[in-house]
Design a binder for these strands. Structure first.
Length: 926
RNA sequence: GCCGCGAUGGUGGAAUCGGUAGACACGAAGGACUUAAAAUCCUUUGGCCCGAAACGGCUGUGUGGGUUCAAGUCCCACUCGCGGUACCA
């Protein structure tokens, strides 16, 4: 009988659905295991063959865990809000809701064909009001919280208010935007609005004027992780710096916990390193520098406290608040000119053009250790957002300060013995100090510690830890996102009552900003809040007393994806994000699979969000994902034909050097094993209708290259086509066979035949099954396979299992014993579930293979009677000796030494050493 | 610049604890079946050398050194490629 995979797969997919085979319950006596894929954004292009790679891997692991007796949660959903649907809406007028729904339907159809064991009853969509209700709810909780540095956790803002009432800011150690100073008395005298403004300085979700990445092309603000080298990650549009009133999340408050948390999760070192760099902890000191002839000082941050004796000038960031106070009258115009120039420069220009620029303020500071007067400059190489926006410059030991000093002809004082600073600075943190008063003779590390002590003792500064991690800007001037549960009264934001959630996204017809420059939500008619009746009303009714305007921005993409893993645990709950019971049962994600491109975005925000909910007592784990695996990207493999320039003739790859040719991308779907189907090519596009070919060996061979998988390269391979042609099981097996899961690799359909042939052969084994007892040899093959496949799955080494299956099939080619074949079916069930069902049923089982039990290795079957020992002389293998398996080490040695082969190689000499590695090898050193 | 990862036949890759490198698959070559093709099956396939033949010799995992009885694997230095990040004081 033929292996009719299409029929088989359709049959089982239908059956699984009818029997609700993959529905998971929250109450089970079994141990739990939670496997999660990063949910996709449903793009209009549909899935290409690269997308399911991680899904297949997680599906294999889920099925394996299930067969091992775990209650496995393996859900799927959609990150449905996002820019592309909105951009599409602007171009076509199609409402994003419609296109998104259409795309999701398509995705589910495509995923369904691959045979995943998702529990679709737990599906979530970020754009579903029942879902984003909890995104809005979490935002309100953050608004109503502050972060206490002493207890290292988020606490209710009410506690902070009561502190203010009793003590003002005295004895307060909390995360804040800026250091405010007021007493309890002053707090009580503040107006309601003033108090609200003060609280904004502490809330975990806060509204503030912030320097933001503004992308004019997208008409929208972007977070730091959404910008790379001055361009937007999505679309590659230029980004500029702007100050705008924005919502932000105080992620920076959690910097230390986000850093420490990395120690207890099983993620790859590379992704942990990326997060460590992004958090950017640096230990140093803050120091006060007095300004000469003025009653004013300013603070700098440094990690090189040891170099204060070499400070020969100071530099302020152009945006520094001290600039205006420091500039002398005669320098005013010059400074203003410079500041304007800096403002005009785009972020991209600044990065591309690193020439030294700056301007002298006319003022001097006093070096607190040498008491020298040192000039204060302004330059854009100092960033306002890091540290205090001001630095002490040590040209001898910092390359940036060095370049600046050379340019402005400022003194350079070397501080480390033997360091030659005539050509460049000496940046390394090592060596012995000199020219440094009481630090002379100390090692750099000792000097740093010594100077910190001095700074603290004399009160000119304090020890300080700085983080690079910034607060996340949370407003987007966009339509297709979660609405903020916020309305404005007296120009201050207020939260919509939690009982009134969700605040549903209103309908609009125009997705562009309003003529007055407001975000697209400004086009919504029903977008005002009736504070008395607690409902959304027409915005024409706004009277700023009881009918109030609602926030017009929406939340960013990462809002909905930050806590979705919790919602799967209990997705129909309308009373809570997740019930206590559901969360206690599922705890956290045990295995999370997804791309490493989310290292500084989603994977940071999710950890932050989780820690916050943990602080609130909503959930029981303070890390969301216990183990993370990053599957590699699948790149495209493009094919080329070579047109002879100026003709409609195409020359085969091997002959192209004889002509002047132009390579042209050709659709990979009309090429097989790099051989072009010339007839299909002629019909592919009108321009090739009359194409002529110069063949080699009767074939047209195409060239190839690895490129990104994209429409314009004609190298997109659609999983539906592969399923149609080879079946889902072949696709699943082949994607795993392609190489190690975590490595990036090009999709190359060459070779899929081999895997398909294997499944065909496997299928043919399941005819005429007998209930005879298997032989020892057959049991050995089977148990070798059990051992190998078990090890592979446990170690996520799925690619190496497939050869093992192939070898075992070859060894068992003539075995038709039920006992062997049905265990084989269970072993391959995670990889090729449809065929496994057929095999399982072929063995006479009534249940589905999903209900089977994972076979256990019986070591006794693995024992061989004899063992081959390769005998090496000085590392080279000379012959192989077969001895009894259980022969002890010294017996092996004796047997080897007394063999005639050994005598031949020894030629009467005594060996220096004989080494027997148990069960492996004999090494004779002459 | 800094951080991380990688480099093995014509190709994808295997070698899991330092123990016979090249498993498995693709491709290629030759053969069987067939009027023919497809499908299927069999043989060969890192390179070089000797030979009538061998279960013969040499060489071989980016480069150069080292440790070891033994190195693709460990150590040092370097080259190239990929990914991330960048005036972070």
């Amino acid at each position: 009988m033929d292996y009719n995979f299409n029929q088989i797969e359709k049959f089982w997919q239908k059956k699984w659905e009818e029997e609700k085979l993959y529905k998971t319950n929250n109450d089970s006596q079994k141990p739990k295991y939670y496997v999660l894929d990063m949910f996709p954004y449903p793009s209009g292009a549909g899935l290409h063959v690269g997308h399911p790679l991680g899904y297949i891997a997680s599906d294999i692991y889920s099925r394996y865990k299930h067969l091992n007796g775990f209650n496995v949660l393996h859900p799927m959903g959609f990150d449905a809000y996002g820019l592309p649907a909105e951009q599409y809406a602007i171009q076509t007028g199609q409402h994003p809701e419609i296109t998104t729904d259409k795309n999701i339907t398509r995705y589910k159809e495509q995923l369904g064909k691959i045979g995943f064991c998702y529990d679709w009853s737990r599906e979530v969509r970020t754009s579903d009001p029942a879902y984003y209700k909890w995104t809005q709810w979490a935002f309100i909780q953050m608004f109503n919280s502050y972060y206490c540095n002493r207890s290292q956790k988020a606490l209710p803002i009410a506690q902070l208010i009561s502190h203010f009432e009793n003590h003002g800011i005295e004895d307060l150690d909390v995360a804040q935007t800026e250091q405010l100073v007021f007493s309890a008395q002053q707090w009580k005298q503040m107006s309601e609005k003033e108090q609200q403004q003060v609280l904004m300085n502490y809330r975990l979700a806060y509204l503030a004027d912030t320097k933001v990445n503004w992308c004019p092309a997208l008409g929208c603000v972007l977070a730091n992780d959404e910008v790379s080298e001055g361009l937007s990650v999505r679309g590659g549009h230029p980004v500029e710096q702007r100050v705008m009133r924005q919502w932000s999340l105080r992620v920076s408050a959690y910097a230390q916990r986000l850093l420490e948390g990395l120690e207890k999760i099983d993620w790859s070192e590379s992704i942990k390193d990326t997060q460590r760099n992004w958090i950017g902890r640096s230990e140093g000191a803050e120091m006060q520098f007095q300004i000469a002839d003025k009653d004013l000082s300013f603070t700098i941050f440094t990690t090189r406290a040891d170099t204060v004796f070499g400070v020969t000038f100071m530099v302020l960031a152009p945006e520094s608040e001290y600039v205006s106070e420091v500039v002398t009258d005669d320098k005013k115009s010059e400074v203003e000119e410079y500041l304007n120039w800096v403002k005009r420069r785009t972020e991209r220009e600044r990065i591309a053009d690193r020439k030294v620029t700056g301007v002298f303020t006319g003022s001097y500071a006093i070096n607190p250790l040498t008491n020298n007067k040192i000039p204060i400059y302004i330059s854009d190489y100092v960033l306002s957002g890091y540290g205090t926006g001001a630095i002490m410059a040590v040209p001898a030991h910092d390359s940036r300060d060095y370049a600046f000093a050379k340019h402005f002809n400022l003194p350079i004082i070397p501080l480390i013995e033997g360091a030659d600073v005539s050509e460049q600075s000496f940046d390394a943190k090592e060596g012995v100090m000199m020219n440094s008063g009481f630090l002379n003779g100390l090692q750099v590390k000792e000097a740093i510690a010594e100077m910190k002590k001095y700074i603290v003792k004399t009160g000119i500064g304090k020890v300080k830890v700085n983080y690079r991690l910034r607060d996340a800007i949370f407003s987007r001037q966009r339509y297709w996102g979660e609405p903020f549960p916020v309305y404005y009264k007296n120009d201050m934001p207020y939260m919509i009552p939690v009982e009134c959630l969700p605040l549903e996204l209103p309908h609009v017809d125009n997705f562009l900003p309003t003529p007055t420059g407001e975000p697209p939500l400004g086009n919504a008619q029903l977008w005002a809040w009736d504070e008395v009746n607690r409902k959304v009303v027409d915005k024409n009714l706004i009277d700023n007393k009881t009918i109030l305007p609602i926030e017009l921005c929406t939340m960013p993409g990462f809002a909905g994806s930050s806590a979705y893993y919790l919602r799967y645990m209990d997705n129909h709950n309308n009373e809570a994000l997740v019930s206590k019971e559901a969360n206690d049962y599922w705890q956290q994600v045990d295995l999370y699979l997804g791309g490493s491109e989310h290292a500084t975005g989603h994977l940071i925000y999710s950890r932050f969000w989780d820690k916050f909910l943990f602080d609130m007592g909503v959930i029981c784990k303070d890390e969301p994902f216990a183990k993370l695996i990053n599957q590699g990207m699948i790149q495209g493999r493009s094919n080329f034909v070579y047109r002879i320039v100026g003709t409609n003739k195409y020359v085969s790859y091997g002959l192209k050097d004889q002509y002047k040719v132009q390579p042209i991308h050709v659709d990979v779907n009309i090429v097989s094993n790099d051989v072009l189907d010339t007839e299909k090519f002629k019909n592919w596009l009108p321009e090739y209708k009359n194409a002529e070919f110069i063949l080699e060996d009767g074939k047209y061979i195409c060239g190839w290259a690895v490129e990104k998988m994209s429409k314009s390269m004609y190298n997109v391979v659609n999983p539906d086509d592969v399923v149609e042609k080879y079946g889902a099981d072949t696709l699943r097996l082949y994607e795993m066979f392609l190489g190690p899961l975590e490595m990036s690799k090009p999709w190359d359909t060459n070779g899929i035949d081999g895997v398909h042939r294997f499944l065909k052969k496997l299928w043919n084994m399941y005819e005429n099954i007998s209930s005879e007892q298997p032989t020892a040899e057959e049991l050995r093959s089977l148990h070798k396979l059990i051992k190998k496949v078990t090890w592979d799955i446990e170690h996520f080494s799925f690619n190496t299992s497939i050869p093992a299956f192939m070898i075992a099939r070859d060894e068992l080619a003539n075995c038709n014993k039920k006992e062997v074949l049905q265990q084989f079916a269970v072993l391959i069930a995670p990889y090729a579930p449809h065929l496994a069902e057929e095999m399982w049923h072929g063995c006479g089982n009534e249940t589905t293979v999903f209900a089977a039990e994972w076979p256990k290795v019986n070591e006794a079957y693995l024992v061989e009677n004899t063992q081959k020992y390769p005998v090496q002389f000085n590392g080279k293998v000379r012959f192989t000796l077969e001895v009894a398996k259980d022969m002890p080490k010294d017996e092996v040695e004796k047997t080897v030494m007394s063999s005639p082969e050994t005598a031949k190689y020894l030629q009467g000499n005594q060996p220096k050493r004989v080494i027997v590695v148990p069960g492996r090898i004999v090494n004779i050193v002459m």
